[in-house]
């Protein structure tokens, strides 16, 4: 870890600004690529800042729900297999809330502007669904 400036967050922000500025001078495919590249850096900056904490929270949540341990990817795979097998058909609301938490966490990193106000904090939906 270097102490030199700019810090990694600032480096990413600087390149994002550059891509945003250059996109305005481009058109067609080049402009679209530049905007996509800026978007990806935007995601990377948020993930560097919040990703580890989100992953840890999700791992704890999944371990509690599935009552087993493993890596985040393994447990997400097991959750998916169980949903497909119908294991949670009678616990639809619980599994729905769990998956909604996972999805809103990802959207918080990728496109927080797309979240409805009730999902921009820590609160999770409680509406009954079936």
């Amino acid at each position: 870890m270097s102490r030199d400036w700019p810090a990694v967050d600032e480096i990413i922000r600087t390149v994002e600004e550059f891509l945003g500025a250059i996109a305005n001078q481009l058109d067609g495919r080049d402009r679209y690529d530049a905007l996509c590249a800026r978007y990806l850096l935007n995601v990377a900056r948020r993930e560097l800042s919040e990703g580890a904490e989100i992953d840890e929270r999700e791992l704890n949540m999944l371990e509690a729900f599935l009552e087993e341990s493993g890596s985040l990817k393994e447990l997400q795979g097991k959750l998916g297999q169980s949903i497909r097998a119908g294991t949670y058909d009678e616990k639809w609301q619980q599994v729905f809330d769990l998956v909604m938490t996972h999805v809103t966490n990802n959207v918080m990193v990728s496109r927080p502007d797309k979240l409805e106000s009730e999902h921009r904090g820590d609160s999770m939906p409680t509406k009954e669904v079936r």
């Binding site: 990817k73 997400q76 795979g77 959750l79 998916g80 297999q81 949903i83 497909r84 599994v95 729905f96 769990l98 998956v99 996972h102 999805v103």
Partner: peptide
């Protein structure tokens, strides 16, 4: 693994 896709399916 995408649990939301599984839920949708």
């Amino acid at each position: 693994a995408y649990p939301a896709i599984e839920l949708g399916l």
